[in-house]
Design a protein around this nucleic acid. Structure first.
Lengths: 170, 170
DNA sequence: CGAGCGCTTGATTGAGTTCAAAAATCGTGG
DNA sequence: CCACGATTTTTGAACTCAATCAAGCGCTCG
């Protein structure tokens, strides 16, 4: 197996992937934080994922099947990533069982994580999702501006502001 | 590798997993249809996933980590499944690279699928999600009662009914 | 110091829920 | 094969939670 992992830096604010382009890379964040998001019909940005240290991020569908991406990816902070390209990824099938098993574990974690988000989006209020966010990602809560968290949990910044106010009355 | 896949039938309406129990199995549907769902604070049922033919379903977090399930699973139709238990699943690490690679592909598909749901839930209206559902799962649309589809796309049955009415005026 | 960004506040609007009840459909036993 | 009860779907009115709109405050950084 050849080690084809490469390293790259992005300055805060860098646009790394634009919807419509094919996602050529899969990133693992070493330092800093990236986000993936859509922009819907009304022009609103919806954050699908934050990727702080040790998380990986990509538009998997676009990356694997080489189709236009639905997601944008950009840097929320100065960020350092390890990344892999499609050709190297396809060589996965030549990896050892141990490495593939590792990959299975990483993917499984992602499924569990996304599933929890689906459960929250379908069955809880904005307030509940906000509380859950703080408890689940206390570090991110300190690092990210309120409007990013609002977008992630699916409410407007104004509404999150009022949620906060209510919660502080206790 | 031992083939530890077993077959089982469920009658329509059977409760297969209850939230709070540990999910002992991972099911692959051969015939019929299962659903996984939560019941939120207000008692409302929120459908997380439908599993018609060839889909697999489980509370993965509960199954893998042997913790109490957040999800319920039940049979929407008379259903036949293949299932695997935890011990056999753990033997995955002894599988061939080819088999593990296959597993990676299955998991990747699940991630892509869940990701599309997240995008829809965060960035579209009930009407858009309904149209998307019909286009993505025309077969399911024929088989399932409206209230199930409503729960899946995150609106009330009453509202879905009115969405339908609006769409039919064309 | 001023421009811009992030956060808050309050007034207004609107998409979707709730509630209640009628109409349609389904399924099961006689 | 029909009848009747149960479930599902439709309808409409009242309501509610969150979005939108608009304005103002406080920081920071250029």
């Amino acid at each position: 197996m050849t080690n084809e992992i490469k390293i790259k830096q992005f300055k805060k604010g860098t646009e790394i992937l634009r919807a419509g382009e094919v996602s050529k890379y899969c990133f693992k964040v070493l330092k800093g934080c990236l986000k993936s998001f859509t922009i819907d019909k009304s022009g609103k940005e919806n954050i699908i994922q934050f990727a702080p240290e040790d998380w990986w991020i990509s538009d998997l569908d676009s990356f694997i099947n080489e189709k236009p991406s639905e997601l944008y990816i950009s840097a929320l902070e100065d960020t350092e990533v390890a990344y892999i390209n499609k050709v190297d990824y396809d060589n996965f099938k030549n990896l050892s069982s141990a490495d593939l098993f590792e990959e299975v574990k990483i993917l499984t974690k992602n499924i569990v994580w996304q599933n929890k988000r689906l459960i929250l989006l379908l069955g809880s209020t904005g307030e509940e999702r906000y509380i859950n966010f703080i408890q689940t990602y206390p570090k991110l809560y300190e690092r990210l501006p309120l409007k990013m968290i609002a977008s992630y949990i699916g409410v407007t910044p104004e509404h999150l502001s009022s949620i906060r106010k209510q919660l502080s009355r206790k």
